[in-house]
Design a protein around this nucleic acid. Structure first.
Lengths: 219, 219
DNA sequence: ACCTGAACACCGTTCAAGT
DNA sequence: ACCTGAACACCGTTCAAGT
């Protein structure tokens, strides 16, 4: 028999914090692929309504999740070395964070970027592209393209085990052979990310110049 | 006063079809960004439970949405001409479909591809990359990279009006200047898509050879 | 300020009953 | 086979009451 002490009213010390809610939510999403407020509250040993004292409902918890992954990104990556290697480092860390928490990606796909850390990172990237002689307008286009690619690649990490399933009555010999030759799903996703990131950055480098090959430096 | 005729039991002719449900769902998502079964049923003039006779609940309706957008893609694009131009045509039509229905994109981000039409398209792309001298393993990697980029670019279409919002207390001069120089959100998204697609395909072309520049042919 | 318990509107799904 | 009406479990959100 466990003795349950029922408490009513404000506790001497707050039992919840934004941070505690955030890490519990992250754990829950990592484990199940989604979260509900009642389940989250249960894991934290509180009532569902208690969460509202710290975050703005379900949308607020998604915000906390976004903050957590944003903070894990390597902003220092952008400071030193040639710009192309700096961007490569940053976007690799960007994707690496999502590789650790793939199931949160679908929850974060559409929202305005407000995180100070992420804003600063993009500012730094625009600046570094400018130093490399790329005009601001073009820099924004390149950054958005890279961003789209990385987000798509992050979503790929949350993909089901079988990404393409050829039905029995459909003939797709080339695709079937290519799929059969594939390594694990994760390896495929990793390789495709490197393939695209390297090609995109190398293409820009070829046009505007930089110190070394991105692919080379990855080894 | 409208006369309402209450009908019970099976009607002489089925009032619902998969197709009717699908187009009503697409309209609803286009208009509101999401859908619920009760609201969909209301628009179709039936009870919520009636939907279950034609589709497998909410997940089934998302499946129908996926079929609808998949069917709108230009599969013939892959048949003729140099492989790089063929792929460019296909991926442009791919993204064009989502540009017409941007708000459905977030609903379709993670699921196994089973659509015969899409499977055939990917088979065709692997085959054409093979003809160009690209080994199957590498072809799959390139295709996945392109796919990730296009999905990310499609999500970009569903992005809020302000993609990056620099808080008042944060200094991001380079980013702010670049954002100020931006045209409309849609134009930014369009340009970034072309930027990335062109660079990715040109990079592969440079390595394996093809007939003409992708960027050139786009004009 | 912070937690509880109860209430409310709403959603997805199931099923017996009717033609 | 296909539609209805009712039922059920569950979810997100609100709010008065308690310390």
């Amino acid at each position: 028999m466990t003795e349950v002490t029922r408490r009513v009213g404000r506790p001497a010390k707050a039992v919840l914090t934004r941070a505690r809610i955030g890490s519990a939510a992250l754990e829950l999403v990592d484990a199940t692929g989604d979260f509900t407020l009642p389940e989250l509250a249960r894991r934290l040993g509180v009532q569902t309504a208690s969460l509202y004292h710290h975050v703005d409902g379900r949308a607020g918890i998604i915000e906390v999740l976004r903050e957590q992954v944003s903070d894990a990104m390597d902003a220092i990556a952008l400071e030193d070395g040639p710009w192309d290697l700096a961007l490569a480092r940053y976007f690799r860390s960007y994707r690496q964070v999502f590789a650790t928490h793939p199931r949160v990606v679908p929850l974060l796909t559409t929202a305005t970027v407000r995180s100070e850390k992420v804003i600063r990172a993009y500012d730094r990237m625009v600046a570094r592209l400018g130093e490399a002689g790329i005009p601001a307008e073009r820099a924004m286009r390149i950054l958005t393209a890279l961003d789209n690619f990385v987000i798509g690649s992050a979503l790929d990490l949350a993909a089901p085990d079988v990404m393409w399933e050829v039905p029995d009555d459909v003939e797709a010999p080339a695709l079937s052979a290519a799929l059969a030759a594939q390594p694990t799903n994760r390896k495929r996703a990793d390789e495709a990310f490197e393939e695209g990131l390297t090609r995109l950055l190398a293409s820009v480098t070829a046009e505007y110049g930089a110190s070394a090959s991105v692919g080379e430096a990855a080894r």
